[in-house]
């Protein structure tokens, strides 16, 4: 993504330049910025374009074969969702209540537009026409039985009409979302017996 370098110049264009010029001329006491040399410094802001390189990007792609600090991917379960090539049904790190909460938040940001808050697959964007194919409900038998590694893989690589979310959701967050999807699946099939005994009274008679 490149941004045209608008910066502060718009203040000094056309009519504005005339207006600024007039007030400058008339007012010896002009306190407004008259010098722009510090406004635009010889450095690259994020996404700033450049003509230094042929592709016009100041952000340089990695030299092939290099590994950035902290990006060595030795943990195959964490990064691929597989153990010895088989889709795993376990998490690479223990899931705490905080992880589940983070998973809920990320799910609501990145997945609900299509999959809906409950995982029904009837999100707002689907209702506006994203239906060829529409996402499946998470509560169908096949996905209930799918190992957690499958959800990780879908997010990482995309799945059919669904694009990959790897660029926007970090590896750890993808596992947390997978955990939250599991929790959603369980919640849709919970019975009164799953509720802790002291809380059951509050629900009695309200279950559909």
């Amino acid at each position: 993504m490149t941004l045209t370098r608008a910066r502060r110049e718009p203040r000094w264009q056309g009519g504005q330049r005339a207006a600024a010029g007039v007030s400058l001329l008339l007012l010896a006491s002009c306190l407004a910025a008259c010098r722009l040399d510090m406004h635009i410094q010889p450095r690259f802001d994020p996404y700033a374009p450049t003509d230094l390189f042929n592709d016009g990007r100041s952000e340089r792609p990695m030299v092939p074969g290099t590994v950035a600090h902290g990006h060595l991917r030795t943990d195959t379960l964490l990064y691929t969702g597989r153990i010895n090539g088989v889709v795993a049904d376990e998490f690479p790190f223990p899931i705490t209540a905080a992880d589940l909460e983070r998973g809920r938040e990320r799910f609501n940001v990145y997945c609900t537009p299509c999959h809906d808050y409950t995982g029904s697959g009837r999100g707002m964007v689907v209702q506006r026409g994203f239906q060829h194919p529409a996402p499946p409900s998470y509560h169908i038998d096949r996905l209930m039985k799918a190992p957690v590694g499958h959800f990780f893989e879908v997010m990482t690589n995309g799945y059919g009409a669904m694009y990959s979310y790897a660029a926007r959701v970090s590896v750890e967050d993808r596992w947390r979302i997978a955990a939250y999807i599991r929790a959603l699946q369980l919640s849709q099939h919970a019975t009164l017996d799953d509720v802790p005994a002291p809380e059951r009274g509050a629900l009695a008679g309200k279950a559909p």
């Binding site: 993504m1 490149t2 941004l3 045209t4 370098r5 608008a6 910066r7 502060r8 635009i40 802001d45």
Partner: peptide, 10 residues
């Protein structure tokens, strides 16, 4: 190439 809407001096 989006046009910048908000920009501060450097």
């Amino acid at each position: 190439a989006w046009t910048r809407v908000n920009a501060l001096p450097d």
